[in-house]
Design a binder for these strands. Structure first.
Lengths: 203, 203
DNA sequence: GTCTATACAAAGATAGAC
DNA sequence: GTCTATCTTTGTATAGAC
């Protein structure tokens, strides 16, 4: 009944996805050979084509899953009734930045995949519609009736995620600024809620 | 003497770069076949290999150029002595957003290229070092001695660029929010300077 | 020095045996 | 469901015409 199985006792299909996810994230789409995935999974090359129609399809399936959890995870946080806007923003920043610190390549990986195939965003639209009626929107409107919540959400995401996208640059520059990337992001966990609060109050 | 030539009177090398830039932006690196580029340029396939060593090299050269102008263009704006921080931020937002509205795929294109090959950022480091000593930093410190300028620059970039990265999602969602992407970005040209000003004042 | 035609090799996809 | 052998596409290299 349970699809979850212990370590080595995975379906062939799951083994492929596991291996593919690993190799894709390390080498990108074009850098990955289906032969690499087969080897990583300890399986025959042809099985990849048997279970998934093509390298592209396999990639898209993995993307859709990653993307889904990537955006969906924070929707419950925003939907909560009994926390203040400040608390919600703080929760989102903290959870996201910590999640991304553990998977720093995820944003670029996901974003470029989506760019090549926007339909991956299909699931996300539902999430966006949920947010429209979230208590948070009402709470924000109460603080500032002019608040434009589409900018609010976009800015919150931007401030959390964008640094990971330009991380290669930050690492290069981090010598002059004498701070490593992780430290910078830890600071932002504290700073983002404050910035967001200012934004809401304004105008 | 002038390397710039009119329309159809381009060097073979320039024709290839022109065509490649177009096709790469449309189809991404792996989606582009060297044969597509040759066809787009109206040239023989082998010329790509003759002028540039490989598809990869050609891609990197185009990337380096795009990236360079992408980040370098706004450094002079920040270096100016005789404008206020507010004016500088306003100029950067306006110029960038308008530039990107004309090349909306550029950010994802550049970002994923850089992600695959961080050395493309080499030129940018120089720019970052220039910024360290920019009058703007002094101006900001005067307003708020605690201002962390690395966050300031990162936030300014994030607020301008990030929306373009998630543009496919915004387009899907734009039905519920009844605004198209361009309108949203025009609003941001006005809003970003205000948000940034709040950030500087705070703490 | 430029360009055309063609050959070659790597890698994704598939047919068919088991 | 899995594997072997094969086909096809595509990046790369070369030989030779102009």
């Amino acid at each position: 009944m349970a699809k979850k199985q212990s370590q080595k006792d995975l379906t062939t299909e799951e083994k492929i996805k596991e291996a593919a996810s690993k190799v894709f994230q390390k080498k990108g789409f074009s850098g990955t050979r289906t032969r690499d995935i087969a080897e990583e999974a300890g399986l025959n090359l042809a099985l990849i084509n048997y279970y998934f129609r093509s390298k592209q399809k396999l990639f898209e399936i993995i993307m859709a899953e990653k993307l889904s959890s990537f955006f969906m995870d924070f929707i419950p946080l925003l939907l909560s009734e009994d926390s203040s806007p400040e608390e919600k923003v703080r929760l989102v920043s903290e959870n996201y930045i910590n999640l991304l610190l553990e998977n720093p390549d995820l944003p670029v990986f996901v974003m470029s995949a989506v760019h090549n195939n926007p339909k991956h965003f299909a699931n996300i639209v539902k999430g966006a519609e949920l947010i429209q009626d979230a208590p948070l929107v009402a709470q924000l409107k109460k603080i500032n009736p002019n608040m434009k919540f589409e900018h609010f959400f976009m800015n919150l995401m931007a401030l959390c995620i964008f640094p990971f996208i330009i991380r290669p640059a930050i690492s290069l520059i981090s010598k002059p600024i004498r701070k490593n990337f992780e430290t910078l992001m830890q600071e932002r966990i504290e700073l983002i809620p404050m910035w967001m609060q200012q934004m809401v109050k304004q105008k």
